[in-house]
């Protein structure tokens, strides 16, 4: 059973200070809070895009960061998939090349490109350029790209915020199908309470850089 344990402190020059501690188990956990509450900081710390001033992050048996013993894994060695709010697909590559980007760089992959493409309903898009896709299609490709890099943890940073309700539901369903097939910790970052209801998952609430409530068992 893979578990993410997070205990970090980080502060910015603006005076904002994050001090949070939580755990997330396999399956989806929602990280909920208004903008400016520190959600993106947590995502950056876990993905390795930011180094905390103090703290420790463990994923399963691996230590991603530990400031006390000066451990810091670079992002490419963390096996943490990240899906951005505005997809961040590589504009110079086709959909297929985007999907293969992570796939090719991980030696121990078990994921299957055509299967993921089928579940996410993007098989017909493989030869297209990202610029020609709709918002929902891009987000599904971005999700597929992250899944194909064989992550142990999936960070979904407001991936549905720019989409309308029916699309959100469809993508959440695909996500659930995929998570049912593989042991994976998924952290869904959102500021939208209705997404949390649809998700039926434990919630970690963040307020002004601190955890407001411990995750409730679902």
């Amino acid at each position: 059973m893979t578990t993410l344990t997070f205990r970090c402190e980080h502060h910015y020059r603006s005076g904002f200070r994050l001090a949070a501690e939580f755990e997330a188990r396999e399956g989806v956990t929602a990280l909920f809070g208004p903008s400016g509450s520190g959600k993106s900081t947590i995502v950056s710390l876990i993905a390795g895009l930011l180094c905390p001033h103090h703290g420790k992050i463990n994923l399963g048996t691996r230590t991603l960061v530990d400031t006390a013993s000066r451990v810091w894994l670079p992002p490419e060695r963390r096996h943490v998939g990240l899906v951005f709010q505005d997809h961040c697909l590589f504009p110079h590559l086709t959909v297929r090349e985007n999907l293969e980007y992570g796939f090719r760089r991980r030696r121990q992959h078990t994921a299957d490109l055509s299967h993921i493409a089928e579940v996410l309903e993007i098989e017909s898009l493989l030869a297209r350029a990202p610029a020609t896709l709709s918002g929902g299609e891009r987000q599904r490709v971005a999700l597929g790209r992250a899944l194909l890099s064989s992550p142990e943890l999936l960070l979904l940073d407001e991936p549905l915020a720019a989409l309308d309700r029916p699309l959100q539901v469809r993508i959440l369903q695909s996500l659930r199908t995929i998570l049912a097939e593989r042991p994976l910790v998924a952290l869904l970052v959102t500021h939208d309470p209705s997404q949390i209801e649809a998700l039926d998952a434990p919630v970690i609430e963040l307020k002004a850089g601190r955890i407001a409530s411990p995750p409730q068992p679902s």
Binding site: L82, F84, F90, Y101, R106, S149
Partner: peptide
Amino acid sequence: RLEQAARTLGAGRLD
């Protein structure tokens, strides 16, 4: 963020 996305997908700095 495109460079950051590449890093999280397993690409080193030079890659």
